[in-house]
Design a protein around this nucleic acid. Sequence first.
DNA 1: TCCTCATATACTCAATCTGAGCAAATGATG
DNA 2: CATCATTTGCTCAGATTGAGTATATGAGGA
Lengths: 360, 360
Amino acid sequence: MGHDMSRHDDVCAAQNTDKTHREGIIGSDAGHDRSGPAAIEIGLNAAIITCAKDNPQILTVRQPVDDRPLEALPFGPFTPIRHRTLETGLRNWVAEQTGLHLGYAEQLYTFGDRGRHARADDNEPHAVSIGYLALNRFDESTALTGGHWQGIYAFFPWEDWRSGKPEIIDEEIVPRLTRWLADQPADRPEVAASPFSRADRLRMCFGTDGTQWDEEKVLERYELLFEAGLVEEAAREGREAASQWESLPLFGRAMHLDHRRILATALGRLRAKIKYRPVVFELMDADFTLFELQKTVEAILGSHLHKQNFRRLVESGGLVEPTGDVRTHTGGRPAKLFRFRSEVLLERPAPGVRVHATLN
Amino acid sequence: MGHDMSRHDDVCAAQNTDKTHREGIIGSDAGHDRSGPAAIEIGLNAAIITCAKDNPQILTVRQPVDDRPLEALPFGPFTPIRHRTLETGLRNWVAEQTGLHLGYAEQLYTFGDRGRHARADDNEPHAVSIGYLALNRFDESTALTGGHWQGIYAFFPWEDWRSGKPEIIDEEIVPRLTRWLADQPADRPEVAASPFSRADRLRMCFGTDGTQWDEEKVLERYELLFEAGLVEEAAREGREAASQWESLPLFGRAMHLDHRRILATALGRLRAKIKYRPVVFELMDADFTLFELQKTVEAILGSHLHKQNFRRLVESGGLVEPTGDVRTHTGGRPAKLFRFRSEVLLERPAPGVRVHATLN
DNA sequence: TCCTCATATACTCAATCTGAGCAAATGATG
DNA sequence: CATCATTTGCTCAGATTGAGTATATGAGGA
């Protein structure tokens, strides 16, 4: 998504123009010099998100890595013989590994950086990861044959602002990132990074110096921590930056391979999309109260919303219609039940839950 | 992008659950049964867009297919040995084929549907296409060693509304799509399509029955025409739908393989993004007048904007600052020159040119 | 039974934003 | 020197937004 992701490898591209023997003739059947070790494998990865009450969760499978269990997203290779499309491949892998049949799913991004896959051995095929975001309503009765729901914010403790600004930001993250940005090597300029300086990135990502918090920058924040060597995945890769933090704790719970990066992409995309497309309803039961809807949106965004305005927006926006029933035992006055008006999809070009965060 | 792209293969996924011999064990190094014909090749494709005055253009290379030249996007396979990342691979291919060094580039989507690549022969490796959007300022002096700039709207004549609603819509497209939707087989329900009926899709895409035109739905419109067999690429694939239109002209200029689909994705994404990120400036010279800026935005969006409001938004939004100079010979009062204020990227979370189309 | 509590729902209001228009300024052109 | 095309400044009503106040209603405990 990020405008700042766009120049990732400007530098490299400009330097090794990498002229080969191949002529100006193009065509995908030229140049089949794909020898064994360079073969490509496409990994399909699903970030399946649900929301139980006000608790956003991600479906993980446990993956033993060096005798230590590590959380992983459901994933598997794309095999064209068996899977007609990328998305059917994904759905089949998920069903096979977890027993879950996906509903809403959208492609996120295709990651191809060498060196983000913890592969020591270069004889392995090169892996490219395609990440998907899937949304599922939470249903206790659905029997999973594999996998577990895990709270999303255990992986990104700095992303949940519902009980105020997470202490970890000012007490741990910002100080250590500040130390890191002071180390920006003047002699060895940043390679493969964004057009921004480390200091600017810190400001934009964590809203220091009064810059405001942008809840959509989930991936940018994770990548910044990764580059600074402050997440386990970076240490695993033996980035030199990580060494200086020896013995200090790293941030958030780690995942297998680049799965936490995919999850960060998924959460960022969902936070953005929830504002202009009616995707929240994929997380809701058929009938719900406006308060439940709000709690779900807040859980995803990681912040609180102004209640009365939220109701006004959702109702007047034609996103929902009352079912006629009410829900009692809410701890207060009974709440009207609503259902999603799927007709809005035909009526308005970008119907969504447009909201602004408050620091309530 | 599309919310409606998300359920593409729900049906298939639900039906052939495709249980195999593989256990619940996951891991990307299991199942290397990739035999010759099923090998995967990743194609990198660049939709490089520029704008000369009010003329949006795409960089193409000519590709001989069956003795007939066909426009293609610069593209080539991703070879992990030579390319550190997907994006460097793309940049190298573009430089090699056209002599152009890309600036801004962002990944769009990874297409993997079998059968959209005009491959008769199943012994070819299966091709997955990763599409990129790149933006370049138009500079006559830049010498291209290959490739040509082509007007974008030659490929999508229905997308340019700057001289009013294109006649092709009401006179050709809607009548033929209407005939097509009447043919919706009740016995053989739509497979692998969106959750919407053909009639609903026609309404949403082409704004019939008073539904308004959404300029961002470029891909959805192209896909609808494709499914209806109304573009050459569909006919090429021998879709049965195409046969009924024999001898009637198909819509827009065709491209090689699935390149027009990638271009449609690129234009749709650019139209969306121009409204919330300052990407237009990648298409502008360093100094420009507000009128030139507006003309460029209008060229991309394919519609006219209210001039005074456009200026107000751009200026008060802090996106630009005056250089102090003026441009004369504009045919009227000399215009102040402006430059992009790149600091906005640090200040505001989503600085863009938020605009609404008018039917001027 | 009745009071308290928590939530639901309704309504208000000022500040801002948006869409659309008019009018004067200014240099080029014939 | 009048005309023209464009820039630039300004107005104004209607819609939207952010935030606050007040009342309704059922649950649960004293």
